Amino acid sequence: MHKLSFVSLWLLLGLLAGCVTINVYFPAAAAEQAADRIIRDVYGVPPRREEAPAGEDAVPPPDSRYESESPLWVALLEALVKPAAAAADINVQSPAIDRLRTLMKVRHRQLLPFYEQGAVGIAADGELRIRDMNAVSRLPDRVRLKQLVEQENLNRKELYAEIARVNGHPEWQDEIRATFARRWIDNAPSGWWYQDSSGNWKQK
Rank of each mutant, 00 (worst) to 15 (best):
V120Q: 00
V136D: 01
Q147I: 12
L154G: 08
M104F: 02
L154T: 14
V136Q: 01
G118C: 03
L154V: 13
Q117E: 12
R109A: 12
D125G: 07
Q117Y: 03
N134I: 08
A135H: 05
G126I: 02
Y160P: 03
A119G: 07
D125Y: 05
V120H: 00
G126E: 02
Y115C: 00
G118F: 00
L139R: 09
R156W: 06
D132V: 08
V136A: 03
R129C: 11
S137L: 12
A135G: 11
L128C: 06
L139D: 12
R142N: 07
M104W: 00
G118R: 00
L159S: 03
R109H: 09
Q110H: 11
V136R: 02
L128Y: 02
L145G: 01
I122A: 06
R156Q: 15
R142D: 04
A119S: 11
R156M: 13
P140Y: 04
A124N: 12
A119Q: 02
E127K: 14
I122L: 15
D125F: 05
E152P: 05
Y115K: 02
A123S: 13
A161N: 09
N153P: 06
Q147M: 13
Y115F: 14
A119Y: 01
D125V: 08
A135N: 07
G126C: 05
M133N: 10
V106E: 13
E158S: 15
R142V: 05
I130G: 00
A135T: 10
S137W: 08
K105P: 04
V136N: 03
E150P: 09
L148A: 04
A123Y: 01
R156H: 11
E116V: 12
G126A: 05
K146S: 13
L111V: 05
D141T: 07
L111E: 04
L159M: 14
A124L: 08
R138G: 08
L159C: 05
Q151R: 15
L111I: 06
L111F: 01
R107Q: 14
L145A: 05
A161K: 10
R156T: 09
V149T: 08
L154C: 10
A123K: 11
R156P: 04
D125K: 08
D141A: 15
V106W: 05
E152G: 05
E162P: 04
H108S: 10
I130L: 09
L154D: 12
P113A: 00
V149I: 11
D125L: 09
Q147D: 13
D125T: 10
Q151L: 15
L128R: 02
L159W: 01
R142H: 06
F114K: 01
E158R: 15
R109I: 10
K146I: 09
D141N: 14
A124S: 15
Q110P: 03
E152Q: 15
L111T: 04
E152R: 10
M104Q: 13
M133R: 10
L112K: 14
R138A: 12
R156I: 11
L139E: 15
P140S: 07
N134S: 14
E162Q: 11
M133E: 14
R142L: 07
K157F: 07
Q117D: 09
E162T: 10
S137C: 09
A161D: 12
D141F: 05
F114E: 04
Q110F: 09
R129F: 09
N155Q: 11
Y115W: 08
S137N: 11
N153R: 07
K146R: 15
R156D: 06
L128Q: 01
D141S: 14
M104I: 07
